[in-house]
Computed example of a mutant assay.
Amino acid sequence: MRDILNDLDASRHLSDPDPVRRAQIQMQTPLPKRFYKEVSVDRGATGHVVKLDGKVARTPARAPIELPTGKAAQLVANEFAAQEEVISPVTMPVMRLANTAIDGVSREADAVLEDILRFASSDLLCYRAGAPEGLVRRQNEAWDGVIDWARDTLGARLNLAEGVIHVEQPREAIAAIGLHLRPRSDPFRLAALHLMTSLTGSALLALAVEAGERDTETAWKAAHVDEDWQIEHWGQDAEAMARRAARRRDMFAAARLIEALNQD
């Protein structure tokens, strides 16, 4: 099912899930030249379309790039406008999310929602370190508030575990998260929520960002408490940090799209 959530561009520019490897492939593969001069947003059949030189831009499956709000469409238009001599899809995360929503998620919304719930059933925030004390404290500080929010606001009382051994979550808790997700099942919002969930390993962090309970930077840092602890004690790897930077860019793009969907 997750195949539909991968970049749906038929070209080789986005052919590898690793953003560093993808960038390497991109450098080896000639990118299409920018063929348009003007980018605009206009009213479409059901929302707002992105136009290139007056013609509606299309997804890899040849569907119109049409988003529910003008603000959301403008995000995609801005990415097209920012391209210079060539069009580099890896620098257009909102456009890629829109393609995913239109060509994939719109046909499989229930499957995407279920995938988010699978993340929730083994959510990052539920698996805690037993030691060292400093890491335990950081996890508690970054994660406990979101766990409490899920309990008090969503009605999802989740079990916590020490270590990585799977802990079964109450059906009622997962059902409560599903109930919260149902009104958020439009393809664009769902695609953004799924991306944030997969990037952080936490459906709760994604939902907290969508609800305004956590800002994107705070959620991103919360998702990397363990990694940052390791970096502080063992140093950082340049390639790993490049991958993290690419994921961070995509995380913030998803959050911007959600914010734009809330505006006309």
Rank of each mutant, 00 (worst) to 15 (best):
T91A: 08
F188S: 14
Q236F: 09
E213L: 03
Y36A: 08
D148S: 10
Q236E: 13
R58H: 14
R62L: 14
V105D: 01
A81T: 02
R34Y: 12
L205W: 04
E210N: 02
E259A: 12
L205T: 08
R22F: 15
I177E: 05
A23F: 13
L204H: 04
T197G: 10
P132Q: 07
D42K: 09
A156V: 00
N78A: 12
E232M: 14
V90E: 15
R214P: 09
E66N: 02
G178S: 08
L124V: 03
A109F: 00
A129E: 13
V94F: 03
R138N: 08
V41E: 08
L195M: 15
R62C: 14
S122T: 03
R248T: 03
I65M: 01
A150C: 08
V167K: 09
T100C: 06
A176T: 12
L8Q: 07
A150E: 01
A238I: 13
Q230Y: 07
P32M: 10
A63D: 13
P170Q: 00
N6E: 13
E239N: 01
G235M: 01
L199W: 10
V136M: 04
P30W: 13
F188H: 09
S11A: 04
E66F: 08
V41N: 06
D144E: 10
A246V: 08
D264G: 12
D53S: 06
L195H: 14
I102G: 11
